[in-house]
């Protein structure tokens, strides 16, 4: 009897010519093997020319987001045995330009994240000790701080697809995180003063971002919270 294997099909792209090809690999069945481990298996044992990103292999660093059977996921969190039978299809994140194989250019995503000025810049600080924040106040940011910048929400957002300037869900969740943090002296007003309002209105409420987020940030809900604040603001004016 032939040894049982998984077949994996990977979309490749040559960095020099831009030519796209598909490579097929047979991977032996090893209990618990993740897609990321399978990719390393390929590089170490079959084809050293394959390129992908990796770091923590434990679902916290956000490096290995890619399309697995057409779903955007972290390769380190998907075990081969969890996938339906048949060839496993692995492709780079969509809508970002490919550097090589599964490595895409994350800079547009990162730049948009940075553009919301995602940082504290409090001028008044306590002389002694910490700024007090109740556990309840902290719940306003407890989901948005879980973001690992994997870009999954960004590449599935239909508005990012339509409008290259749209900041996208992760950056908006970061905007929410800083505006809704009870300790930030800029307060929610920061959404108007720092971030402008255009993109918050732009969200089409499709909710794909929350569906693909591997960490439960729920960007759609975060954007909704921003919208509720902004609408209350315009009513008051």
């Amino acid at each position: 009897m032939a040894e049982k294997t998984y077949e994996i099909r990977i979309t490749r792209q040559d960095p020099d010519t831009g030519e796209k090809t598909k490579s097929f690999y047979q991977i032996p069945v090893i209990p618990g093997m993740t897609v990321l481990e399978a990719l390393w298996y390929i590089v170490d044992r079959i084809d050293g020319s394959l390129s992908f990103r990796y770091s923590c292999r434990g679902g916290v660093c956000g490096s290995c987001s890619m399309q697995i059977n057409r779903e955007v996921q972290l390769a380190c969190q998907v075990q081969l045995s969890m996938l339906p039978q048949g060839t496993i299809i692995i492709e780079p994140l969509p809508r970002l330009s490919v550097i090589k194989d599964l490595v895409v250019d994350m800079k547009p995503f990162m730049n948009k994240y940075n553009s919301v000025q995602p940082f504290f810049a409090n001028k008044k600080l306590p002389q002694q000790g910490e700024m007090v924040q109740s556990a309840e106040q902290r719940t306003d940011i407890e989901d948005s701080v879980k973001c690992i910048m994997c870009g999954a929400c960004y590449v599935v957002c239909p508005l990012v697809y339509k409008d290259a300037d749209f900041m996208g869900p992760a950056a908006m969740a970061a905007a929410q995180r800083f505006a809704f943090d009870s300790r930030n002296e800029q307060g929610k007003q920061r959404l108007v003063e720092v971030n402008g309002l255009g993109d918050f209105h732009g969200c089409l409420k499709v909710g794909k971002c929350s569906h693909v987020c591997p960490k439960g940030v729920d960007p759609a809900r975060r954007i909704e919270e921003i919208r509720e604040y902004v609408e209350a603001l315009s009513k008051n004016n």
């Binding site: 504290f120 409090n122 306590p126 000790g129 910490e130 007090v132 556990a135 800083f178 930030n184």
Partner: peptide, 20 residues
């Protein structure tokens, strides 16, 4: 060091009185 990180926004878990 902890206070500086907190002042820079680190979202530490909190005691019931709101301290770290």
């Amino acid at each position: 060091t902890i206070y500086e990180m907190e002042h820079w926004g680190t979202a530490f878990s909190r005691l019931p009185d709101g301290r770290i």
